[in-house]
Design a protein around this nucleic acid. Sequence first.
DNA 1: CGCTGACCCTGACGGC
DNA 2: TGCCGTCAGGGTCAGC
Length: 270
Amino acid sequence: MPELPEVETTRRGISPHVTGRRVSQVLVRQPSLRWPVSEDLAQSLTGQTIESVDRRAKYLLFNTSSGRMMVHLGMSGSLRVLPGAVPPELHDHIDIRLDDERILRYRDPRRFGSVFWLPGTESHALLGELGPEPLSDDFDGSYLFRLSRRRKGPVKTFIMNSHVVVGVGNIYANEALFQAGISPVRAAGRISAPRYELLAAAIKDVLARAIEAGGTTLRDFVREDGSPGYFRHDLAVYGRGGEPCVVCGRALKEIRLGQRTTVYCTRCQQ
DNA sequence: CGCTGACCCTGACGGC
DNA sequence: TGCCGTCAGGGTCAGC
């Protein structure tokens, strides 16, 4: 379920606890993730010092002087820092023991996530074709307008495409389109430049607010905590199909678009 | 090239 | 109560 705000919240939460720490041991209990965890992860990472933790799209990058560990949390993944030798539970797939005896633990019940080791300064094919970060200055309305010309697919599918912009998952795509007053089913190529300005601003706003909320919630990455990074009461449309629109009161419409649940107001979103 | 749909997996949930 | 089918979801990739 991690969307970009939760990945960023995870990065901020664990970063102070792992930065500057040396990895003393890596234990892979379950290598069968979205892509198999390579056997050289453990030997490459062991002995290395984590210099910083970056994020690109929904990937977390743990930098060392000899390479990087790249982690994707998929649908159900989480990373926590444990105070010591806490017994693993079901779905706790990877333990990274640090030199202060704390453990960075990767859990992922549905195993949609992935963990790679990138040697040296090597990149990864999965990082190669990504669009801009939604919160960066590279991402704005004119960018979306330019890229969308002659595109016939629905705008919601367009903004969820990681080649277009990264980190806009289903929940926030629904929310941003509602906030911008744009129908999710409208063809991407049939939306004006001014309306794309509204959409880009809405995407930035919903993501930034969710990150802020994540930072102020009771998340504690040094203990067990599985609380989600967003709150249902903050969501205007997602998960509210059939319920009244918060603006006009009309029942929200729920459809499937590109295999994803889509909720919108047929009056407020055109 | 753009777009659609299948697929990976397990937990939650609804119906019977 | 318990079983079983369905759905949810990110993101890649095959195929049209």
